[in-house]
């Protein structure tokens, strides 16, 4: 029933779709991760000025479907002079949408660092910027890797929506193959397997990173804590 030969015949379309999905996901996630950091940092730096706008941004990302955002960018953009290629609209949509979630993940990480540490740093005359780079971010990194990995997985799966704004990604090309060959199971299952594989790779990468950070960090911190306790 499952016809492998059929898949071999359409490998060109599958590979093209895979390539498009991969690069759009990569840049979309990159935008989400970096813009999210900027938003979280702004909120942290000046809560009174940026707290409310960033919180609103986060709520909007959580409350509207990515598909609406993609449609706004791709079909709504031209009304205000913003003409984007479907691929670029895809990257932008995934990036803007993911940034709201990442801002919240970073914030969770920041909040979990005891205030006493920052007060101590200020007492010692360490500048806020220096405290951010040397004290907050290294500790935060470990905490945000698991939810961050989860979010990346969600973004990779949601990237299938860009097929609806006519990007030739994996999902769109699978449908093209279905329409050409009149076979439903093979193309869709093959493509599902590829998504599964991508997601598994992201998850594995997340675990590996988490392990590395965990191995490096706590021993160092624990030693220091002990020396203080003993001293």
């Amino acid at each position: 029933m499952f016809d492998i030969a059929l898949l071999w015949d359409v490998r060109g379309l599958i590979l093209q779709g895979l390539w498009n999905t991969l690069w759009i996901c990569f840049f979309g996630c990159l935008l989400a991760v970096s813009l999210g950091l900027v938003l979280a940092a702004l909120r942290l730096a000046n809560p009174r000025l940026f707290g409310y706008p960033v919180a609103c941004y986060v709520e909007i990302c959580r409350g509207i479907p990515l598909l609406i955002l993609l449609f706004l960018l791709y079909y709504g953009g031209p009304s205000i002079g913003l003409r984007l290629d479907a691929e670029i609209a895809g990257v932008t949509g995934i990036g803007l949408y993911g940034a709201g979630y990442f801002a919240e993940i970073y914030r969770g990480g920041f909040k979990s660092i005891p205030k006493g540490q920052l007060e101590a740093a200020r007492m010692l005359g360490i500048s806020p910027w220096h405290a951010l780079i040397r004290i907050q971010i290294p500790q935060m990194a470990r905490l945000i890797v698991p939810p961050g990995t989860n979010q990346l997985i969600i973004l990779v799966k949601e990237s299938a929506l860009i097929s609806i704004i006519s990007v030739d990604d994996l999902t769109k090309n699978a449908t093209t193959i279905v329409n050409q060959t009149f076979q439903v199971i093979e193309p869709y299952l093959a493509v599902a397997l590829l998504y599964w594989l991508m997601i598994e790779l992201v998850a594995r990468g997340g675990y590996a990173l988490e392990k590395r950070l965990a191995n490096r960090q706590p021993r160092h911190v624990a030693q220091k804590d002990n020396s203080h306790a003993n001293g």
């Binding site: 799966k157 929506l161 097929s163 999902t171 699978a174 449908t175 279905v178 599902a192 998504y195 599964w196």
Partner: peptide
């Protein structure tokens, strides 16, 4: 399977299969 693949793909699979 249901957590690891895009929901759009699942929808198309169910609808056409």
């Amino acid at each position: 399977f249901w957590r690891g693949t895009p929901i759009l793909l699942q929808l198309l699979l169910v609808y056409y299969l």
